[in-house]
Design a binder for these strands. Structure first.
Lengths: 241, 241
DNA sequence: CGGTCTATTGACTGGCGTCAAGCACCGTGG
DNA sequence: CCACGGTGCTTGACGCCAGTCAATAGACCG
């Protein structure tokens, strides 16, 4: 996947785009770059002149503490305009890194601006994408603060599945998720050892399988019930915006 | 405080506003409502036709789980356009509640739209506000996932102090923060009992005082160092946006 | 003065981190 | 072909941090 199609699809899940708007997006110049696992896509502290969107694979936002500890604050799937933030924030408060091999497209800020000036609707749609990011982050905060580890893990799997299915990157109830248990710990705020034990528990309960970077949900209903997962916050419905 | 001045000040901390832009903001119709402690300002699941901004006091975003557990995912101070999100998200994924007594101004979505259509710059500034919210939420995720409880508490106090000072609602190193230890626990993802013990520890270390809803930072440098607090993510600097 | 809400304290339990060792898989090179 | 090292997964032992339960104290209020 080396063009902007995934982003168009992501937008079209939330509202109808006019042909003119689609053309505007497709006309954005795209610097396509592929990364292998665990590479830096955008650096914390930098002042990027471009924003990037995920075209293939997974990216994550990552923050680091003094003692080398790391927290992953978001995971991004194909079609996510990950780094739209830097267009307005100017200076990065976090890094964007690859999870497994990942292809992204960089768009100059000047072109982001041109598109938003050419189309009020696309301006709102880009804004919407960052606001949905915020909703996902709120869900993560609640997971970290008040859900049990089992619920948190289940919630993460449900969320990823629904987001991937929405952009057509899931087959049945299975999806690829090429990350290590250490990275999973950095998402959940847990040690690697504990991630391992909890994964075994969920597997043991017959809720999911997780082998060779492939996640399979055995019973979505039960998993969602355990997680108290409600997909409303993903705004995956058509609505005039 | 019953007019939109705090919001203007918040914006002006990030970029220069033209006189025309200031007039546009001040012309927005404002339905001012005051709340006592712990009232619902916007309800989870609702579809608001207005967005609200905090004019006086504190508001919080709040999510609830089945067993009655609650997580506060954000705290908002005067000048924050809290619920700009609902303009694009349409359906609330969380509630907005008052922390202590609080005055907010509701602005119809139609007027938000009118302002953003009248001024490209204000459109970007409003967008910026939601993106800064996202940056704060990322910091909270990292606090919850990877900071110790002491660091988390210290980080929260540093963040609140800097945000309040930025809008001129702090006197010296002291600020009002009218919340219970239970609410504090709902921010930090902790039990009330544990919040109490940790507060005592920070007081004992001579880093801060917290009495009768008044927080005083004894030594900001040491507190910030403990918390690994870096205010970059608050975007409190002038920059053309 | 009793009633309610909040802060505080103690005792006990359990979840999660740390340390350490062993195992499985894979690509490399002798 | 097999030895080897690297990386990631798995398991056990042990200790501490934080939750729960319960009781007390203090503050505010009708």
């Amino acid at each position: 996947m080396t063009d902007i199609t995934p982003l168009v699809r992501t937008l079209q899940r939330r509202d109808v785009l006019s042909p003119a708007d689609i053309t505007l997006i497709q006309a954005m110049p795209l610097r396509v770059v592929s990364f292998s696992a665990d590479q830096e896509i955008v650096s914390e502290g930098s002042r990027p002149a471009e924003s990037c969107a995920v075209l293939y694979g997974f990216a994550a936002r990552s923050q680091y503490l003094r003692e080398g500890q790391r927290q992953i604050t978001a995971v991004h799937v194909p079609g996510d305009f990950v780094d739209l933030h830097s267009y307005l924030l100017k200076k990065m408060d976090h890094s964007v890194v690859s999870l497994g091999s990942c292809t992204v497209g960089y768009v100059p800020h000047a072109d982001v601006r041109a598109v938003t000036q050419a189309s009020q609707h696309l301006a709102r749609m880009f804004w919407l994408l960052t606001v949905i990011d915020g909703a996902i982050q709120r869900a993560w905060i609640t997971c970290l603060g008040r859900r049990s580890v089992d619920q948190h893990l289940a919630h993460l799997v449900c969320e990823l599945y629904v987001r991937l299915a929405a952009v057509g990157v899931a087959s049945g109830l299975t999806f690829d998720f090429p990350i290590t248990q250490q990275e999973l710990g950095d998402m959940l705020g847990l040690s690697t050892v504990h991630v391992n034990r909890r994964l075994q528990k969920l597997r043991g309960l017959g809720l999911l399988q997780w082998q060779n970077s492939k996640v399979t949900i055995v019973n979505f209903e039960r998993l969602a019930d355990l997680a108290e997962f409600d997909e409303t916050y993903l705004s995956l419905h058509m609505e005039p915006r």
